[in-house]
Amino acid sequence: MLEIKNLHAKIDDKEILRGINLTIKPGEVHAIMGPNGSGKSTLSSVLAGSEVFEVSEGSATFYGKDLLEMPAEDRAREGLFYSFQYPVEIPGVSMVNFMRTAVNEHRKYNNEKPYSASEFLKLMREKKKLVEIDSNLTNRSVNEGFSGGEKKKNEIFQMAMLQPKISILDETDSGLDIDALRIVANGVNKLKSEDNATVVITHYQRLLDYIVPDYVHVLYKGRIVMSAGKELALELEEKGYDWIKKQFED
C-alpha cells in the first residue's frame, strides 16, 4: 500500500533523509527504531505532508497514487494518519468542532454525506469508549493544557475517529504510564485489521510487547540501515545502538 523509494529530504540545505526505502503492505505492523535525531519524525512528517522539509529526490506512492504530490489534507483523506510525537495545542478550537470538521471533510472527499450532529456525537461516544478517553478532554480545546500522556491518548482517539488505512505512531508510548500504555496499545490493536497497516516509532521494547511488529527497522542518519523481525527490538533494548553506529559511521 505504501511504497517509499530512495526518499531524500532536506531542510535549509541540511539533508536529513538520505535515501529511504520501505514497502508496507496491508495488515502489517512495522516498527522503526533508531537513535535520537536519526530522522524518524522527519520521515513521518514528510509522509504526512509537512511543508517544512523539501523532498529533493525519490518517491512515495500510496495505493499507486503519488503521495508527495498531494497536499497534507488529501493524504489524510486518502487514509494516512500521523500520530504526532509532539501534538500541537490549539486553544480556541474545540475538540468537537475539530473532529467534526475532520470527519466530515473526509466524508466529503469520499462523496459521502456529512454526519448530522447526532450521528457524529454517537460516533464520538463510541470511539471515546474504545480508547478510554475522558469526556472532560474531548470537551476542551485541542490538546490545550493536556498532559503528555493525555495528548498521546488524544492522538489515538483521533485515529479511531478517522479510521485510516495506515497509521504512523511517532513515539506514542513516551509519556505514558503503564496503564495508559496498555489502553493506547489496546486501542491500536482493536483498530487493526487485514486492510490497514501500522508503523510504530519507538525507543522501547515495552510498546512492542503489546503491538507486536512483523518487521523492525533501524533508522540511522537518514537511512534504514537494518531490518529484521521482532527479535531485533529485543536485541536493541539489550545492546543499545553503539554496535550499529560503529558499522555505519561515515
Binding site: 490549539i90 478550537v93 475532520a102 471533510e105 472527499y109 480545546s141 478517522l162
Partner: peptide
Amino acid sequence: SMFYLRSRGIGKDEARILLMYA
C-alpha cells in the same frame, strides 16, 4: 497548528478559518 489541522484532513481554507476563529 496549520499542519496539525491539515494532517487530519481539514483543507487549507477551512483550517485557516478555524485558526482565525481560534
